[in-house]
């Protein structure tokens, strides 16, 4: 974490030009009509030239697109951490740690399945806070216990260390993966307090929404699956939609759970249509789609209300993530033969 003074204005100024390089709706309309190789060419002619050229010899087709997108995302987010200082660094880093979680999970899964470290390394997205040398050391170790040792001094060490015993008992990765995700989500809000106005308030509201939506997704998935799992174990502190006991109670009553989300004054209206579809159909996908759209809408509001605060940086982070997800969805969708309408339905565009 940087100890210098916070510099949101500088970061914002740098981010503004990056934001302009994001693909527009018009670009998406073009991309939807292209095949994977045309998409790769289009990317090469725009923002993704360096990554496409660098990875072109190793990968082809949609794999080239997916890995280039991940590399490009990592490059941009790494730059954000490079530019940011002080509090703004902390605010950005606490969100980008989701990529540290992704990387540690990928490495643990690789070790679990005896995957060669070169292959594991390919799947990493080095956009988090962990320095490259730590990630490289993680790739060199051969046991999960050693992974935990390497992470000593990070916020993941203690939760992983506690979950390791459970992992040894069960042999399943679930405790370790949940410990990593919980560490990330519970550190999102951490010491931010509950500001009621100003850019910080919006930033906190956004992070709360992220936690609430994650709790809602998990609760709905648990309710639908009927698995014999304690819902409290998957509850993430910090949101406003549920408290722990409420969540445990609602998981056993699917309709009451959906009603609870629909009745919430903050999210009810935003998720109204998705919840109606959720009541009619069995699939949670439409709901998750609506949740992603709601988060993107939040991020857009963040950038317009306080344009020189960390909120605008956040808005860019989410927009960039969404761009990567949309291009990947288009390319994979075309590869597996989805129609233009099906792909369009799945895209989350403001």
């Amino acid at each position: 974490m940087s100890s210098s003074a916070s510099n949101p204005e500088y970061v914002n100024a740098r981010v503004r030009s990056r934001r302009n390089a994001l693909f527009s709706d018009e670009d998406y309309r073009k991309l939807i009509r292209m095949g994977p190789s045309e998409i790769a060419r289009f990317m090469e002619e725009h923002e993704y030239e360096e990554e496409i050229n660098r990875l072109g010899a190793r990968f082809s087709g949609v794999d080239l697109i997916e890995y280039s997108l991940n590399r490009n995302l990592a490059k941009h987010f790494d730059d954000l951490l490079e530019w940011a200082d002080g509090r703004v660094y902390d605010q950005i880093a606490r969100y980008l740690r989701k990529f540290d979680v992704w990387n540690v999970k990928t490495i643990i899964r690789g070790i679990y399945t005896d995957t060669p470290s070169e292959e594991i390394g390919t799947d990493l997205i080095r956009a988090g806070e962990l320095p490259d040398r730590t990630v490289d050391r993680l790739l060199e170790v051969e046991t999960i216990e050693d992974v935990i040792e390497v992470l000593e001094g990070t916020l993941f060490y203690e939760p992983l260390d506690s979950a390791y015993e459970h992992y040894e008992e069960t042999g399943a990765l679930v405790p370790l993966e949940n410990a990593l995700d919980r560490a990330f989500y519970e550190n999102l809000l951490g010491d931010l307090g509950r500001p009621t106005e100003g850019p910080e308030a919006m930033y906190v509201e956004f992070l709360q929404a992220e936690i609430d939506f994650r709790n809602a997704r998990n609760a709905l998935r648990l309710a639908r699956s009927g698995a014999d799992l304690d819902p409290a174990e998957f509850y993430i502190e910090g949101g406003v939609l549920f408290d722990r006991s409420e969540l445990s109670r609602l998981v056993s009553d699917y309709d009451a759970l959906v009603d609870h989300i629909a009745d919430d004054p903050r999210y009810g209206d935003r998720l109204d249509a998705a919840l109606a579809r959720l009541r009619e159909a069995d699939s949670l996908i439409a709901f998750e789609h609506a949740v992603d759209a709601a988060l993107l809408e939040y991020s857009d509001r963040l950038s317009s209300v306080y344009p020189v605060s960390v909120s605008a940086v956040f808005s860019y982070i989410l927009a960039k993530e969404r761009e990567v997800e949309n291009i990947r969805a288009i390319a994979r969708g075309r590869e597996v033969g989805l129609s233009e309408e099906e792909i369009e339905e799945e895209l989350v565009i403001l």
Binding site: V101, A172, V174, S225, A227, L229
Partner: peptide, 11 residues
């Protein structure tokens, strides 16, 4: 069921 598939639910 969800708890037996091996992957973490939260992520």
């Amino acid at each position: 069921d969800l708890g037996q598939r091996g992957y973490g639910i939260m992520g």
